[in-house]
Design a protein around this nucleic acid. Structure first.
Length: 575
DNA sequence: GGAGTAATAT
DNA sequence: AATATTACTC
């Protein structure tokens, strides 16, 4: 069906030109879908008549890579028949109707997705993924010969990334093994950034569960948008519910296959191309039996009457803060800055459907708490710098990015950092030589404080550093965006002193402190450079080690320059 | 009613 | 351990 080897060799800009069979009895809807698809460079052949579509496919199955089939009240039987007929083709069902049993039946019969109308660009944009998915995941008996070249071609695209991505995606060894057994492992890479595929994580879960024989404990479902929390820009999310399903109600010609198909995930891409999805899971002990369908699709929850249970259950879904999601969170937080980084705004920025303000708030709380444990350690390191004094004037140095705050902190951290200081020197004393270790949270973290994913040693850590070129030793550690100019070359830059212990550390601008600058003094030229920079940019916070001039000195200087009228600020009195 | 925090539950 | 929920305060 899909494409020949030649097709793929020529297919430089996949998925452009991917051929879509579109059946929609509603001509208006059909033309809308068609124009959207064509705008995305898909090649669309539209039918409004079932028989035409079927005969077109039957006569030349290789004309199509993917099908979008509308299900309506009248053509249900035909739709199922088409699903049976075109098993090799990834078929996306779409409908205005919300009928759980129909959706279940479609999915069980092999439909890759069930989308509620209207089909937005976001819904349509990634339908190519189903082609890839099918190529990789269809069972040997189902995959067509023509799909194999697709798979091979894409494997070569996916493979080089795979090793890294496997780590980044935190795939458990167990899962990896399962996937290898299933010969579907390439797909998992597609579940990562580059070639996201709609069903990947869920498939992994389902595969694992199947292998462990407890698949009834978990199906994947799609949540509907959380009411009122998201605008139309928000994207569908994927939720994973630990819901038992009544398999007896599902049509299945091949139970394993059916379940795999049930693991349909809906994924959309936000404007910037990033995924906007969230994995959610429910605690098994919260399961309602029977009618709990878990909202097997976005549409389901709205569609089916019993879905009230799904909706209510959604409350109990647990957000899986994947590195990807967390990255988004951090980006939102950083984009907002200290003043604006509040749950609702973060939520808005993240544009991740299924995520609630509460989810964000909870995560934010944890985020802040973690930072709270991290920052004092950084301050400790700064405090060891020569010339540094802890008089209040220098307190702004504790939070050197106040002009563009990265994150909100509890006030006591920058109003009186000394109060929150854990014992500093013992920590220093216990440091391993910086030459053998880049500084990590592990080195600085308080004993007993939870580590795991909060640490850079974690594989997902790299996702959490918004500026991979820079070191960040803490979760969300403020690091200077590269575009922020010379400011970051100040030695107090958080990322600039990762390697405590008197070794040269490059900050993000390649500015390098001399060896032993920590132990003794910065080289004079370094000091000069810092002083010059500070003087040329008085609006920036002072680097550590530099004292601001006294008020008297400033006034005297102003007077010398003939400036005698100084407006009163904050009650400070001048002449 | 949202936000922040701490405590507690799951 | 991670996340959600709750209670409380602002």
């Amino acid at each position: 069906m899909v494409c020949t080897a030649n097709d793929l060799q020529e297919w430089k800009d996949f998925p452009k030109g991917l051929r879509v069979l579109l059946l929609d009895g509603d001509t208006t809807s059909a033309s809308q879908i068609r124009s959207k698809l064509e705008a995305m460079d898909y090649t669309v052949t539209a039918f409004c008549n079932e028989n035409e579509a079927l005969s077109a496919f039957s006569s030349n199955p290789e004309s199509f890579h993917v099908a979008i089939i509308e299900v309506n009240a009248n053509n249900g039987h035909w739709s199922f028949q088409f699903l049976e007929t075109a098993k090799e083709l990834p078929i996306i069902m779409t409908s205005n109707i919300h009928c759980l049993s129909t959706m279940m039946k479609c999915i069980a019969l092999g439909a890759v997705e069930f989308l509620r109308k209207p089909l937005s660009e976001d819904k349509l944009r990634n339908i190519w993924q189903h082609v890839v998915h099918k190529a990789f995941n269809a069972g040997g008996s189902v995959i067509s010969e023509t799909l194999k070249p697709v798979k091979e071609s894409l494997v070569s695209m996916v493979q080089p990334k795979q090793e890294n991505e496997e780590q980044n995606c935190k795939i458990s060894k167990e899962t990896e093994n399962v996937l290898r057994v299933h010969e579907n492992d390439q797909e998992q890479s597609a579940g990562c950034d580059k070639y996201p595929a709609p069903s990947t994580p869920q498939l992994k879960q389902v595969s694992r569960l199947l292998d462990h024989g407890d698949c009834q404990d978990q199906i994947n479902c799609l949540s509907e948008k959380e009411s009122g929390e998201h605008d139309n820009e928000t994207k569908s999310v994927e939720t994973t519910c630990n819901n038992p399903i009544d398999e007896g109600n599902l049509l299945t010609r091949e139970p394993h296959h059916m379940l795999r198909k049930t693991a349909v995930k809906k994924e959309n891409v936000s404007g910037d191309g990033s995924k906007s999805e969230v994995n959610m899971s429910r605690h098994p002990d919260n399961i309602d039996s029977g009618k709990d369908n878990g909202g097997a699709a976005e549409n389901l929850s709205k569609a089916s009457v019993p879905n009230s249970s799904c909706k209510s259950n959604q409350k109990k879904m647990k957000v899986d803060w994947t590195s990807e999601l967390h990255k988004k969170f951090v980006q939102a937080v950083e984009q907002l800055g200290v003043d604006q980084a509040i749950p609702s705004r973060i939520l808005d920025l993240m544009k991740t459907e299924g995520l609630t303000r509460h989810n964000v708030a909870s995560h934010l709380q944890k985020y802040r708490m973690h930072k709270r444990h991290i920052l004092p350690k950084e301050e400790d390191r700064r405090l060891l710098q020569p010339h540094h004094t802890r008089d209040p004037i220098h307190q702004r140095s504790y939070y050197p990015y106040s002009h563009r705050p990265i994150m909100a902190f509890p006030p006591y951290h920058y109003t009186n950092p000394t109060l929150s200081m854990p014992p500093a020197y013992p920590m220093w004393g216990s440091q391993p030589p910086a030459s053998s270790h880049p500084a990590t949270v592990q080195m600085w973290g308080q004993p007993g404080y939870p580590h795991s994913q909060w640490q850079p040693s974690d594989q997902s850590w790299q996702y959490w550093n918004p500026y991979p070129g820079l070191q960040a030793d803490a979760w969300g550690c403020p690091v200077m965006p590269p575009e922020q100019g010379g400011y970051s070359s100040y030695p107090q830059n958080t990322s600039g002193f990762q390697n405590a212990g008197g070794h040269a550390v490059e900050n993000c601008h390649g500015y390098s402190m001399p060896q032993n600058s920590f132990d003794i003094h910065p080289a004079e030229e370094v000091v000069d450079k810092i002083v010059k920079e500070a003087m040329s940019k008085p609006w920036l916070p002072l680097p550590l080690g530099l004292k601001p001039p006294s008020t008297e000195g400033v006034l005297a200087e102003l007077t010398r320059q003939g400036i005698c009228n100084i407006p009163q600020i904050n009650g400070s009195n001048t002449r």
